[in-house]
Structure formats: structure tokens, C-alpha cells
Design a protein around this nucleic acid. Structure first.
Lengths: 218, 218
DNA sequence: GGTCTTTTTCAACGATCGTTGAATATTAGT
DNA sequence: ACTAATATTCAACGATCGTTGAAAAAGACC
């Protein structure tokens, strides 16, 4: 097994993925050309087709690259919370925290990379064209696991209310972590999209209250 | 003033706008070509450039066409709620209802047209590239008016909490009304994106509880 | 050093892109 | 009916698109 060469190849591949991730996040799949991606990656156009099958495949690999990391961290966080509750069930806040805290941690450690990734997810999640298959394939299994935990935390909540609550959460989450800057404009600088501290303090409380409101509905 | 001809022109213009709206909603600005739009509108390519300055202008006019209608209906609903409270302030639920009910009504009366429009808004709202200017220009003034009403309903709420609460609401709203079908997949058919009745019953309660949770935070 | 395999570059393909100017069809005003 | 104005079509432009095959460069193995 050649070492130097395989390493170099992986490095090039990652450079292409990074460039693609940033540009796709900014302008969407159709808004970016392979040529622009490779220019940003400082490599020849056709090199993209040596490392990837097609533009579509390149996009899929961008999505896949971080999906496993994210899913693992979230699952780990959920299991840690459950481990602390051997007899009783974790609270809604704790479960939502396990779902959102990994995102906050990742943004704190490697901000730019994950910011682009979350922007990409936000776009896909609110698109009818792409969202369906992609989100279902890579994220729904873990989401079902979280909903299962929430079901135990809210035993009186109906299935419909549970799914709708998660759906509302999903919209809040994807928009917030996309850091679109919308709130910066609207608030005239009072709030900043990138202020993860403020988000961590507020989002779980806001969403948990919503879950409880629907669960206690008659 | 010529009547028949001006009418025909307006009809053609609307046909182009309808086709563009549907396709932009489905695949985004860059994902659709002017030729595809005009094929769907059953008209020649260059006719697009007789009615509109450019592809970008066509997109802007698609956005503008329904913005005024939507803003007016929302403002009217808010003022109706305020009229019913001469001495005390409206509740958070009522204000949120005035913000969301017009969307439900429009979807009930002209479902397809407005569905495409809301899908378009959802895409723009969660995009860093386009969202900034467009949303700020056409919707933020009215949003500020709603936040003002919410401030009166929650006099103890800090400014930051108020803006963050609205931001969370905004994510929930745009995703939900885009009818992406995500919840249909996730729930295995228990919930349907197009079930406006279920949304009307749940969303205001969910969001109002969130607002109150942040307002009562110490 | 020479050979083989792997990585990168060069040059080009047909298709489609947004846009335009001139020609044609349709309607308005007289 | 004739003319002027408006609405629509035809034909084409240069640019860029995603993608490919063959040549060149670089590292691995003997």
C-alpha cells in the first residue's frame, strides 16, 4: 500500500469537497458550476471526474462526509442523557439538548466548515425537490430514535402532536443553525446569528415549552 | 386606452409569472432556465424579454406580485385583533394567529398558486445568498409591526428574547407552509404536510408557549 | 534506471444558457 | 382601408455548461 500517494489523493479529494461544500451552501446545487468549484479548489476541471462520478455524486459525497460524524455525536449525547436516568425518563429539555448541543459544539470547534454544512442542510430541508430522499436517507433514522425518547418523556402526548412538534422544531433548528443573518437585520444588531451562546440559552427552552403545550392539549 | 390588447398582455404576463413561480419553487432560481419557463407558459423564449427586463427581474416580479396581498391581509388581521382589545392587549396566541391565519385562508382558497409562493419564500428565507435583501425589503416592515404588538402582549420580555422568539417562529412557519412532505415520510403517513386543519390547531399554541417560556425566563 | 500504476493536465465535444435585433402578426385609431 | 403602435415569433450571438478521451507528470516497485 503506497502511503505518500494515497495521502496526497485524499488531501486533494478533501480540498475539492471543501470548495464544493462552501459554494453549494452559498448558491445551491444548480447555482454553482463544476468549473467554479475546481477553480476554488485550485485544480483542473477534469480532476473532479477522476475523484467523483459526476456533479451529482460530488454533491452527495459532500452531504455524506459529515453525516456520520453528526449522527454519531447526537446518538452519543442522547445515550449519555439516558444513562443518567436509569429509573425515570429524561426531560424534554435534556433530549432536545442532546439533539442541538452537538451542533453548537461542532460550530465552536470548526466553525466555518460546519457552518457551510448546516447552511446546506437548511436549503435541502426546505426544498421540495431534494429534501425528500436525502433527508430521509441520512437523518430520519436518528430522528426516529429521538422521537422515541420524546415519546417516553411525554407519555400522554398523541402521535400526531409528537410528529408535528418535531416538525416545528425542525424548522426552527435548520433556520437557526444556517446563520442566515436574517435576525441581525431584523433586530438592527440587537441579536446576532452567530451568537451560539444566546441560542443555547434560548432554543431548548422555547422548543420544550412548545412540546409540552401540545402534549397537554385536550 | 386600448382594452382588449392590454387585457391580453396582462394575461400573457400572468401566465409567464405562474409558470415561473411554479418552476422557481420547485428547483430554485438557477435550477430553471428561461426556456423551460416559457415552454411551460406556452410562449416564445424572447417574449420573456418583452415583458420583463431579465431573468432576475422576472424572479423579482414573481416575488412582488403576491407580497402586497399577503402583507395587507396580515396587517388587516392584526388590526382586527387589536380592535377587539381597546383597553387590554391581545394575547400572544391571537397575534400569532393574525400572522398565520391569512396563510391558511389563502391556501384554502387558491391552494396551488400560494403553495408555490410559500415554497419559494421558504427557500429564500433559509438561503444566505438571496434572503438578506429580499426578505428585508418586502416583509420585515410588517414583521416589525407584529413584534411591536408582541412586545405589548409580553411587557416583561427582553428585546433579545423577543427577536429570538420571532426567529424561531420564522423557521417553523416557512418550513411548515412550504409543504415539503418531510413530515409525511417521517411519520409514515400519520401526519400530512397539506393538512392545514392540523396545523391551525397546533402551530399557534406551540409557538405561543415558546414565546412565554422565554419571556418568563429569569 | 526502467516499467507499471496512479494522479493530474490539456483540449475538445455537443448541449444549453441568457439575451438580442430584426421580422412578422395582431389590434387601435383615423 | 391605411397607418401607427403593440404583441409575438424567428434566428442567431457568444458564453458557459457537464462530461470525456488521450496525453503528460509523478510516485511506486523491481
Amino acid at each position: 500500500m503506497p502511503r505518500r500517494k494515497a495521502e496526497q489523493k485524499q488531501k486533494t479529494r478533501d480540498r475539492i469537497l471543501d470548495a464544493a461544500e462552501a459554494l453549494f451552501a452559498q448558491r445551491g446545487f444548480e447555482g454553482v458550476s463544476v468549473r467554479q468549484i475546481m477553480r476554488k479548489a485550485d485544480a483542473d476541471v477534469s480532476l473532479a471526474y477522476y475523484h467523483f462520478e459526476s456533479k451529482q455524486d460530488l454533491f452527495d459525497q459532500v452531504m455524506l462526509r459529515r453525516a456520520d460524524t453528526l449522527n454519531s455525536l447526537r446518538l452519543e449525547a442522547l445515550e449519555a442523557v439516558e444513562r443518567d436516568h436509569t429509573d425515570d425518563a429524561p426531560t424534554v429539555e435534556e433530549i432536545i439538548g442532546a439533539f442541538t448541543n452537538p451542533l453548537l459544539d461542532l460550530l465552536a470547534s470548526e466553525h466555518e466548515e460546519w457552518k457551510h454544512y448546516f447552511q446546506l442542510i437548511a436549503q435541502i430541508n426546505s426544498s421540495t425537490e431534494w429534501g425528500g430522499e436525502l433527508m430521509t436517507r441520512y437523518f430520519d433514522p436518528l430522528v426516529s430514535r429521538f422521537i422515541e425518547a420524546l415519546r417516553k418523556a411525554l407519555p400522554d402526548c398523541s402521535e400526531e402532536d409528537l410528529f408535528w412538534s418535531y416538525h416545528f422544531l425542525s424548522g426552527t433548528l435548520t433556520l437557526t443553525f444556517a446563520e442566515t443573518g436574517r435576525i441581525d437585520n431584523l433586530s438592527g444588531g440587537v441579536c446576532r446569528s452567530s451568537d451560539m451562546q444566546s441560542i443555547a440559552e434560548r432554543m431548548p427552552a422555547f422548543l420544550a415549552a412548545g412540546f409540552r403545550a401540545l402534549a397537554q392539549r385536550r
